[in-house]
Structure formats: C-alpha cells, structure tokens
C-alpha cells in the first residue's frame, strides 16, 4: 500500500493574534499535483512555508516521506531539531518563491550549482553537467552566464525552478510562482511547470491561475481563513463547487 508523501495533521500556526492556520489536515500522494487556491490571508502560502520549515508550526504535525518534520518525539515530549537536522529535512523539498529570490551576485548557472556544490558537497563536473541539462530543460541554455538582473521575470523564475530541481527534491513547492510576472511572461513559467508535472513530480502549487489548475491539477484545495473549505478533482471544485464560500471566491476571481 502506498503512503502519502506528505501527511499534515491538525496543524495550527499563529502570527501573534492572527490564526494563519487552524487545524489543517491533508495528505499529498506521490506523483500528485495539488493546487491550493484561496484569497490572500487564507493560509495557503503559510501551509507551504510550514512544509518547508521556513515557518515553525505551533501545533499538530507534518510528516514528509514518513519523517516527522522539525521536532523529535522523546519521552512523551517534542524536542525541536537542530538547524542542521532541519536543513537536512529541507533537502527533500524544493521551493519556488513568488519573487524568485535568485542570488543576484551569481550567474544563472551558479545559482543552480550553489546548493549541490556547497550544501551537498558533490563533484563540480557532475553538478555542472546536471545544471546545464536543467537549464536546457527550462529553455535557458543560452543564459547560463547571465546574471539575474539581465533576465526577464519569466526567465528568472525558470532559473529558480531549475535551482530547486538541482537539489533533487521529492516534493516541489510553488508559492504563487507567476503572481509577480507581467502577463505575457506567465505562460513560459506555467509551461515549465506543466512539463514537470508530466514527468511525475509531486507538486503543491499555490496559485491564482485557475486555468492551470483546471488543466494540470489532480486535486484542487480551496482554503479560507486558515482552514480547508473544499477539496476534490479540479473539474468538481472549479466547475461545480459544493460550498457557498468556494462559489463566492470563484465568482470573484473569474
């Protein structure tokens, strides 16, 4: 029997008084492409950041590939993992940010090789060859030696996807990957993501691109006020939503 790659159980996260996540539970299965939709402040980005441990959860638990994230159970208590252990757990996930966050002082190629060389300590010939292959895959072979400032937003985001893939993650997290892009550049990034989905990568995508969700997602999850309101097949959630709140959101977006 297969197990979920990500198991999220009763996760809560507060920022001061604000409850960003209230008791969220969810499974993500290997090879699944999941799109998270919802208004800003609904907790979808926070959920991704908790899976990647850029934010520490306040209650509940997240298991990735069977391993409890961020804490260790010992003698009936939870102990926080060290920074090093958290770093090791992060290697299983790749994160793509809304604002790309490429390293501006490094070329496209150096951005991609930085993690494998510095963190994983792998051999440079091999890493370089893989990075060039990744650049080819995102359609940017000609831009290996360009700095981020010389690339368009769409190109930067494609390099950022390649950078995340270079760590060979089991799970790719996309945090509104096209929201900061000019409209004419959205398509090239979505095309790369579609190709990635086809290759069998497990993906969680926070997005406002409902067309992408309809076409690519195996499952769409609608969140509101820190909780999952509705989830299911893309055609069901987007085409025939059961919940009133989902209907209201969709009619506001379209």
């Amino acid at each position: 029997m297969t197990k979920p790659l990500v198991a999220i159980r009763s996760v809560a996260k507060n920022f001061g008084e604000f409850q960003a996540l209230r008791s969220v539970s969810l499974d993500v299965w290997p090879g699944e492409v999941m799109c998270l939709i919802g208004a800003s402040g609904s907790g979808k980005t926070t959920l991704l950041r908790c899976i990647n441990q850029l934010a520490a959860i306040d209650a509940g638990g997240i298991w990735l590939d069977g391993e409890l994230l961020g804490v260790r159970e010992q003698g009936g208590r939870l102990h926080r993992l060290t920074e090093r252990e958290i770093g090791r757990q992060r290697l299983k996930t790749g994160m793509v940010f809304q604002r790309f966050n490429l390293f501006p002082h490094k070329t496209a190629l150096e951005n991609i090789t930085e993690g494998p060389l510095q963190v994983q300590g792998r051999k440079s010939d091999e890493v370089r060859a893989e990075a060039l292959e990744l650049l080819r895959r995102v359609g940017l072979s000609a831009k290996a030696d360009s700095y981020p400032a010389q690339l368009s937003g769409g190109q930067q985001q494609r390099v950022a996807i390649a950078r995340a893939l270079a760590m060979k993650p089991m799970l790719m997290l996309f945090d509104e990957p096209t929201s900061a892009l000019d409209p004419e550049l959205v398509g090239e990034v979505l095309a790369v993501m579609k190709e990635l989905a086809k290759s069998g990568m497990t993906m969680m995508v926070v997005t406002h691109e409902l067309g992408f969700a309809r076409e690519v997602a195996d499952r769409v999850v609608y969140m509101d006020q820190g909780a999952i309101v509705e989830q299911g097949r893309a055609s069901d959630v987007l085409g025939a939503p059961r919940e009133e709140r989902t209907r209201a959101f969709l009619s506001a977006v379209i």
Partner: peptide, 27 residues
C-alpha cells in the same frame, strides 16, 4: 539584504552561517 535571500538560501538547505557567508555577506 532582502529577507527572501535568507529564505532562498535556507530552501536549498543552507544553515544560518553558510547562508551569511555565501549569500548575504557578498551582497
């Protein structure tokens, strides 16, 4: 240096000191 740079460094598995040395200080 933008907070996103720390996060991007963390996301590729860097610890605080390595992120400082490789990513934040040069900028």
């Amino acid at each position: 240096v933008d907070i996103g740079q720390y996060e991007a460094a963390q996301a590729i598995g860097m610890g605080r000191l390595r992120a400082l040395r490789r990513i934040v200080l040069p900028q």
